[in-house]
């Protein structure tokens, strides 16, 4: 379950706002990627050295992360490999070179949309945690890239139980906001 949860959040990194989280390239789901990782280790398609990596779950997460990256990069490759054919048709080498160096209009739009989405998400979370000192501090940690419970405990000087409790409250809020924004 932990692995499926991890897979979902890895998928969210790649899936756009309008896309369905359960429908990844090649018709796969985050569950499929998680199960695939288990199967690969079990069938020894992907190696696992228990002495080097004693925590199997961490190893499986690494495989999920890598497979997810591969799934989306091969999708991107399919899209970009179609561009030269289109450019060939309009017979304009200059345009082709330009596209190679600078982001295309579509890419710029995607990047702008991503920035706006991120801004909106930050603003919504800031409103949701306002007045709750613990959650405000937690949000600041996440903004600074401090996401592991131990690192948060070090940063805030809280004991680990306090971090866990604050994390749970923050997760509930974040999940609600993320699901609302994804369903819009």
């Amino acid at each position: 379950m932990d692995l499926v949860n991890f897979s979902i959040w890895q998928a969210r990194k790649y899936v756009g706002k309008t896309d369905n989280i359960t429908q990844l390239p090649e018709g796969k789901t985050p569950e499929d990627i998680a199960f695939g990782a288990i199967e690969k280790v079990w069938s020894k398609t992907r190696g696992w050295d228990p002495e080097k990596y004693p925590d199997l779950l961490t190893h499986l997460k690494w495989i999920v992360k890598s497979d997810m990256q591969h799934l989306f990069s091969s999708k991107r490759h399919q899209i970009t490999s179609r561009i030269p054919q289109f450019v060939d048709r309009i017979e304009n080498d200059a345009v082709y070179c330009e596209m190679d160096q600078e982001p295309s209009v579509e890419e710029q739009l995607i990047s702008k949309e991503k920035e706006e989405k991120e801004k909106k998400l930050k603003a919504e979370l800031a409103v949701a945690v306002k007045g709750d000192e613990e959650l405000e501090l937690l949000l600041m940690c996440i903004e600074d890239g401090i996401v592991k419970a131990e690192a948060i405990a070090l940063e805030t000087n809280w004991d680990i139980t306090r971090v866990y409790n604050a994390n749970k409250r923050f997760r509930r809020l974040a999940l609600k906001i993320l699901n609302q924004s994804n369903s819009m």
Partner: peptide, 27 residues
Amino acid sequence: FTTSLYDFMADTEGLTKEDIISELEVS
């Protein structure tokens, strides 16, 4: 920020089995 947030959400340390089940169902 989004990547940080998703990394935070992907880490289930400190959550109980019930917490994870409930989050999966929300997803």
